[in-house]
Design a protein around this nucleic acid. Structure first.
Lengths: 247, 247
DNA sequence: AGGGTACTTTGACCGAAATCAAATGGAAAC
DNA sequence: GTTTCCATTTGATTTCGGTCAAAGTACCCT
């Protein structure tokens, strides 16, 4: 996941690269240059943006909506390996071929740069590489945190971990602290949750029902979730209650 | 894992950062500067180099031996989240606290830089950041590949995947192609393999016995492995035979 | 050589999650 | 309004890997 790589977009537009270029160290020309080569693309829910093995000729970041990175085995088993939220970066400079599918989980808008000029920019503008390094290190931490979830947690803990990540992301946007109940809409189907957690969709459904029965969460409809006690949820996830979990 | 981030060390010493600084783009002063602040540390097998939560005041790379990155839950469940081989980088600029344990799996020598001067170098020497970005992106790919292993593969496939990674690393060092049998010593105990694969050590042992019985591998002693047919092993791992697997 | 220790193998049994199957619910389409 | 389609829930059964327990093996150390 990439959730730590988030920015305040309120005053600098929607692109994390540009944001940092404006606000931190860079001169105006660099901004202009990036401005000149950026463009927007929209995708519908379910649409595959990039197929594994295809050439990748752009990089970019999510403006709105959710995308997922997915790996698929020949026999159809699939594992989601990343969840891309607004401001998260997609693509990698110096790599021609996409190593996994990128799929729009919801309707999606991306801000893109053609790869070639972006790579040239990276050489001439050190801060872009440094910024990208920070973001990539955050993603690496998140991926490793998720390896613990996949490798060692029970189905119930996995569900609680996922809910806690989504809740936290929402909490950081909507509320200041994490006291009081947290309310959000699940942006994923049961199947997508299963693909993320390395479970079947039936197990996901059963564990959500169990958490509901045990009053760890409340559901209105299938997607609208209330977390009355975030600390309780994190206990269920097997995490330290004190916020050690990297989102 | 970090196996893709490997270098040819034959003519430039043992440190990947320095290697690139010398051979690719940089001036002599930069090399001198890095030379001046580097130092070596040795560790015995089993020794914990860095504890999760501790302050990290250095970065470095593995010179010889194997280290592992490990996460542990309060109840003792542990998951290895990375395997560090010679030339792999440890630590992250811009991060004070270690997010996981770093443990010497075998006797180990590391080449270290104090973090502060290294970070200063990163600002003044763009190529270091760019090099580090490439390495980190490779590690991220490897971590995501491993998420598929942890989330969706069977115990047998997991073992085959691990053997195939180790075999391939060794093959790349000892032989040019991957035709003919591959021979190597397992650098991990059954328990360490289990921690890497999200299994118990008993299951690891049983699956190794099964692969032996089915003649996918041959064992002499507990650790010395022969792979008569690498393609067969990769089929068992559930990977494309054509080398799609990121090491 | 003997004895200790740590690593590994093997067996018996159990349980959590997968699989197979059917029912329910909810929203869009007719 | 009701039909259709999908997402979801729930149930019955199976299976893979975990757990508990007991040997077996190799290496080290006097």
């Amino acid at each position: 996941m990439t959730l730590k790589a988030q920015f305040d977009h309120t005053n600098c537009g929607e692109c994390p690269i540009r944001h940092r270029a404006v606000c931190a160290h860079c001169e105006r020309d660099e901004l202009e240059e990036l401005e000149g080569i950026k463009y927007y693309r929209s995708f519908e829910a379910g649409q595959t943006i990039i197929w594994s093995g295809d050439p990748m000729n752009f990089v970019g970041s999510v403006v709105s909506g959710i995308a997922s990175l997915t790996q698929t085995m020949e026999d159809g088993r699939t594992q989601m390996v990343g969840l891309l939220l607004p401001s998260d970066f997609v693509g990698r400079p110096g790599r021609e071929i996409a190593p996994y599918d990128v799929v729009a989980t919801t309707d999606l808008v991306m801000c893109c740069f053609r790869k070639k000029p972006f790579e040239e920019m990276m050489v001439t503008t050190p801060h872009i590489a440094q910024r990208l390094l920070q973001m990539t290190l955050d993603e690496l931490d998140a991926a490793r945190e998720w390896m613990l979830v996949l490798g060692r947690k029970t189905a119930r803990e996995k569900i609680a971990s996922l809910l806690s990540i989504i809740a936290r992301r929402d909490a950081s946007i909507h509320q200041s602290g994490m006291a009081g109940p947290i309310v959000f809409d699940l942006p994923l189907t049961r199947e997508a949750m299963a693909d993320y957690l390395g479970l079947t969709l039936e197990t996901v459904s059963r564990q959500i029902s169990a958490l509901k029965k045990d009053q760890v969460i409340t559901l209105e409809g299938k997607r609208h979730v209330t977390i009355p006690d975030m600390g309780r949820l994190m206990e269920e996830a097997g995490d330290d209650t004190d916020g050690g979990f990297l989102v």
